[in-house]
């Protein structure tokens, strides 16, 4: 029995979770929304998704190659970033603009800050905001090819002008908007998957959406239908389940999540109501990302039998 034994510090067993299994779960959870987007907006949407994902992965690969860093594309986080960005873009986005957005997300927001886990803001959201400002000709929505709907205005714009949008179209997503944000059924399905797989907890999405609803409800003179329409419009559901829950840029503790979600909800309504852009979800999450380190330091977990006692 002369064979050598491996010595290591405990624990000697490990859960099956890894960064790539978590990212794989997020991709699976986004698939219903992606499929719904392609069905509603046509094959052009598929093109945007393909470009964003491919460019994101290639950018990360090249960055790691040039900077002689260990290759990290296997963790699938670049795929998630590319996919999320695409789902936040309208189907008629010029493909070259989609590519530049993807490069910006990966290189500027993620890799230059040190790669996965080190970015201070969510790459996909920041890239979306960057594109909104950089490409002024980029519309914020494309319109369904599937059915005839009110052309020319997104639900949020219609609602802001005092119009009405049917709840049914908001739920099924046969409305104008970004590729992945319109079909609420698909988004909620994906969100439930993430909850069941314990990738995310309920705190951020539920509190974010509820806060937005309540604040809107107050501002809309307690009109339930109108407030519900506002809540189901724009990128709120996509943002609440998939962007605001990004580990790196949101708090880890329960109370941290509560503060983060309430803040994002209030900001979303403020921007939607008084801002010059019709949609506020991206800006709201981005602003809360910046506040995240502070929220984390305000909300540590209580130590069991710690010295403070």
């Amino acid at each position: 029995m002369s064979n050598k034994l491996n010595l290591s510090v405990s624990p000697h067993i490990h859960s099956k979770n890894s960064t790539s299994t978590i990212m794989r779960d997020v991709i699976i959870a986004l698939l219903p929304a992606a499929v719904a987007g392609v069905v509603i907006f046509g094959l052009r949407a598929l093109g945007v998704i393909a470009v964003c994902v491919a460019v994101a992965v290639i950018s990360e690969y090249i960055f790691n190659y040039i900077t002689k860093k260990e290759q990290t594309i296997g963790d699938l986080s670049a795929v998630v970033t590319g996919l999320l960005l695409a789902l936040n873009l309208p189907a008629n986005t010029p493909l070259w603009q989609a590519a530049i957005g993807s490069i910006f997300a990966i290189i500027v927001v993620k890799c230059l800050f040190g790669g996965i886990g080190c970015n201070i803001v969510n790459p996909a959201i920041t890239a979306r905001v960057f594109m909104l400002i950089a490409f002024t000709n980029l519309s914020s929505a494309a319109f369904p090819t599937l059915v005839d709907t009110v052309a020319g205005a997104t639900p949020l714009a219609i609602l802001k002008d005092g119009g009405l949008v049917s709840i049914e179209s908001l739920v099924f997503g046969t409305i104008g908007g970004a590729i992945g944000e319109t079909c609420k059924i698909a988004l909620v399905l994906g969100g439930i998957y993430l909850l069941v797989r314990r990738v995310i907890t309920w705190h951020i999405p539920i509190i974010y959406i509820t806060t937005t609803f309540i604040f809107t409800f107050i501002l809309q003179d307690f009109d339930i239908l109108q407030s519900l329409s506002f809540t189901l419009s724009g990128g709120l559901i996509l943002g609440a389940f998939f962007m605001a829950t990004d580990y790196v840029t949101s708090p880890a503790t329960k109370w941290g999540k509560v503060i983060f979600a309430v803040g994002a909800g209030l900001l979303t309504v403020v921007i939607r109501t008084w801002g010059s852009y019709p949609e506020g979800v991206s800006f709201a999450i981005l602003l809360m990302n910046i506040l995240n380190p502070y929220i984390c330091s305000w909300t540590p977990r209580k130590l069991f039998g710690g010295k403070g006692k």
């Binding site: 491996n6 067993i13 960064t19 540590p300």
Partner: peptide, 26 residues
């Protein structure tokens, strides 16, 4: 198969360590 642990990668700040610690350590 069980003697060696999987490779270490970058922290993604998921908070699992913080939230599973019986004593609330970070």
């Amino acid at each position: 198969k069980m003697a060696f642990l999987p490779k270490t990668t970058a922290c993604i700040r998921c908070g699992r360590c913080l939230n599973t610690c019986p004593f609330g350590i970070n």
